[in-house]
Nucleic acid binder design. Structure first.
Lengths: 299, 299
DNA sequence: TATATGCCATTCATATATGAATGATCAGAG
DNA sequence: CTCTGATCATTCATATATGAATGGCATATA
């Protein structure tokens, strides 16, 4: 049936899918547009189905192409993981490492830690990717991930870093001149900051047993970083990691104090490269110390 | 650092790793030995490290190459999945489907079911792979898997087929002329058939609360198929799926009757190709009917 | 000891894939 | 309407990768 498709063709396919045109894809892969066109034509011939409709302003994918897309991405993830694994020496602390974390983690927690890593191992090249699912590690789109929940995938190297509290916080400037928040009912009439789309966290948002729904929020954002920034800017009352709450005022600590676990994940295939183990251990240690710091220490 | 490695080189790398020599790898990929040699040399140059030691009778992998191996396999799995997904039309019931199952399942349960599928959809090409881990589906080494335990991976399409019993069985020819087995203690002195290496099933092997250990087995095999064949050949007493126990005598049904669940798994990326959905549903239905047949019906 | 069969490296003529240049087409801006 | 900036398809000279053939080298086999 289908035989011996050159893997480079898949690469060109993916590039065209992402870039939207032969020319743009060619630029990205540093090959010429005619070559790119030939690759796609060859691939279509090999697979026996047409993958793109040629239009004056690019190639638009057929349904068949869309169906193949996730597989092509998996291929790219695996190729990326291989290149990262091959970068640097066998046991040397050099080469690329891709770390995935949530926005807040990447922006607020990791930078000083990464700084320390880079100082200690100057040969390392760190890539920070923002994402929220363990899938990244399973799919090898990232080597190591920091997550705020236990892994839902078996077969991953996982370390529980520790637990910390979430809390309701507001900036003093917001609270000034507004009715005090002393009981759960006092939240009515206040500006609440929360998620836009339902998330894992959504269920956590219960104050004194009552669930805060989407409509109760005066400011909605799916970016936890934007939420944090909004709280700090005095936009209203929102949820924030206790260890990150410096300068903010905690509200209703008795009514809202859900605990969150921090986990570190790694793909088992990376254990054979010692630098991943070292970075994993370094991160686990540094994150544990971060949690144990101000407001943490719940584990 | 490392830039723009042609994915075909990874393919050659994998072929050499598996074949053990440039010539053999070349034959497998239908390219010449000099070309294969050039590919490896190019890859080594691109990755900046030597991958093989050239010996008179082949290429032996360095540690670096061994470390890259799992990644290369992931790449091959993804490429295979892509080709399989691309084989056949978009919504047509034709093309390749790879089904993973344990030995016993593949040999005893699936054949008539697969026969039915092939009759119904003549365009389908079925590949039966023997394996025991959900990993296969997660890694996309198989499209659909039949498993005897709930999935340990989230993010898989999973259907619980039903439960059935395991039991202790022996062939009448074995039992003839031997002391009868009426209580758990009677097993002493009998020939037991069991696993060689510790497995998930090992823990199940408890008779009247007492665990049967490795040393108690007179015949050990990690192949469940070999065990079944041994029981049927009258080698001794062993564990067998109730639905497969035709012609055998059940022993100590009150003391040993652990329940096992059968699950069907599929990678979510395949849902967009309708033939995988259809085959999934067909398998789920046929397996459920198999279980509900003789000796099953525990769900 | 001679012979056969693996293997890899090298060479060199050839087939193949590539890129620059060109032309055609379309959409949007002035 | 015209011009600009995208796009893709085609052409053709060139660079590149390929395979057949060869030689050298080990290890089995008789």
């Amino acid at each position: 049936m289908i035989r011996d498709v050159d893997w480079s063709l898949y690469r060109s396919f993916l590039a065209v899918m992402e870039a939207g045109s032969l020319s743009a894809a060619g630029r990205r892969l540093r090959i010429s547009q005619p070559t790119m066109g030939r690759h796609i034509r060859t691939l279509e011939a090999a697979l026996g189905q047409s993958l793109f409709l040629r239009t004056p302003d690019g190639l638009s994918p057929t349904d068949a192409a869309l169906a193949l897309m996730p597989h092509a991405e998996a291929l790219a993830d695996a190729a990326g993981a291989l290149t990262r694994a091959a970068s640097g020496g066998r046991d040397a602390m050099e080469g690329n490492i891709r770390i995935a974390a949530s926005e807040v983690t990447a922006a607020e927690i990791l930078p000083p830690i990464v700084r320390g890593m880079m100082d200690r191992w100057p040969g390392l090249v760190i890539e920070l990717a923002v994402s929220n699912s363990d899938e990244d590690v399973m799919r090898r789109a990232a080597d190591i991930a920091v997550r705020m929940a236990p892994p839902r995938q078996d077969a991953l190297v996982a370390a529980r870093i520790g637990g910390f509290e979430l809390g309701l916080y507001a900036h003093p400037a917001y609270l000034r001149g507004r009715p005090p928040v002393e009981r759960a009912e006092d939240l009515r009439g206040h500006r609440l900051i929360g998620f836009d789309r339902p998330f894992a966290y959504t269920d956590l948002f219960r104050v004194a047993g009552k669930r805060i729904a989407r409509d109760d929020f005066a400011l909605r954002s799916d970016s936890d970083m934007a939420q944090l920034a909004a709280i700090r800017a005095g936009c209203g009352i929102g949820v924030c990691h206790a260890p990150l709450s410096g300068g903010l005022v905690r509200l209703l600590p008795a009514d809202f104090a859900p605990e969150v676990e921090m986990w570190l994940l790694m793909h088992p295939d990376l254990r054979s490269l010692s630098r991943f183990d070292h970075v994993f251990a370094y991160l686990a240690d540094a994150l544990a110390r971060h949690i144990a710091g101000p407001g943490g220490a719940a584990s």
